[in-house]
Design a protein around this nucleic acid. Structure first.
Lengths: 180, 180
DNA sequence: GAGTACATGTAATTAGTTACATGATTGA
DNA sequence: TCAATCATGTAACTAATTACATGTACTC
């Protein structure tokens, strides 16, 4: 499905970037909530996208001799990206989740053992939710940006991430209530 | 991380099963909401688990000569599974989601194009939510089973799947409201 | 007799992670 | 001068998907 291809094309379509910039973007809290890639996956994909005529690059010098490659999207790349973006695809049947897998088998744990796991997950998901909500508050003042701006995309996925964490927290709290 | 290993050990720990049974279990609505594997991944993993002494199998004959392998968990397998089950692991940083990736880049779509995608996703997630809630109602009468029963694990993940879909629906409706 | 479900495997490819490998620049 | 960050790559391995491949049993 080449999803990484489109994730990268979309970033470079926003503005010219280096591989390192792309790696950094995938570490940003908003993007990382629904996509991620290591640099070992990014650099080969960038090379491939250049071979396929989707991207060009210029070599920049920073300081005395440190080289970096600044990638730019080609018209063909932009076209492919826009076609992909329009695709209406069926929802993913499975959102893999290891903790839910453990929960499925929790009959084999003692109540205390499972409660410990539930509480640890709850703590982590609450922290994640609060962190994401704090970004939404500090960056967007909890108000959606104007339509047609890049910031609106950022806002919407951040908002979705907060909702997802809230829902996870509600589920964990429900499970804890059952076990007490 | 060998997650499939533990998903399979957990199923066979519940009761002896064939590879085909395991494949069917991964198509069941509750399990499929958070885990999935194709038979091409299951059969080699079963072979490996036998090699590692985690599973044994007996060959059953169905009808005249059709053979099937009924797998049973070994004490070593059960032990490994129980150790894995107790592990408290950090939450996954990323829950990959292609529609959220598209949303992130939606500034490059027209309002109508993006609204069409949003509405299609909304319809699908509502159907998924209703379907899951209907299973919860018909199988569990919306009431959690007793602690310590296998049914409670099934109920909890199903409940979590309903909540997750409800949260997705709420997010999509929020996005649609912004775009109107 | 046809179609569906049961039943098990392998091959080829793509996706993703962890480890290996190197070196420059900046700021404390 | 030390540490963190910038910067780019490859190798080895694990995970997962799609396609290839085969045959039986049951029900209408």
């Amino acid at each position: 499905m080449r999803n990484l291809k489109y994730a990268i094309l979309g970033l470079v379509n926003r503005e010219p970037m280096t591989g390192y910039d792309i790696k950094k973007a995938f570490e940003d809290r908003a993007l990382t909530s629904f996509w991620h890639a290591e640099h070992s996956q990014i650099y080969p994909e960038l090379k491939r996208l250049v071979d396929e005529g989707m991207l060009n690059f210029d070599t920049d010098i920073r300081g005395e001799k440190m080289e970096k490659k600044l990638y730019t999207i080609t018209p063909a790349g932009r076209n492919e990206f826009l076609e992909w973006l329009k695709d209406d695809v069926p929802v993913e049947r499975t959102y893999k989740d290891i903790f839910r897998l453990r929960t499925f088998y929790s009959e084999s744990l003692t109540d205390e053992e499972f409660l410990t796991l539930l509480k640890s997950q709850l703590k982590q998901h609450k922290e994640k939710r609060d962190h994401l909500a704090e970004i939404r508050r500090s960056v967007f003042l909890d108000t959606p940006p104007e339509k047609g701006t890049r910031e609106l995309g950022d806002y919407m996925v951040l908002d979705g991430a907060v909702l997802r964490e809230e829902s996870y927290v509600a589920w964990l709290e429900h499970c804890i209530k059952i076990f007490r």
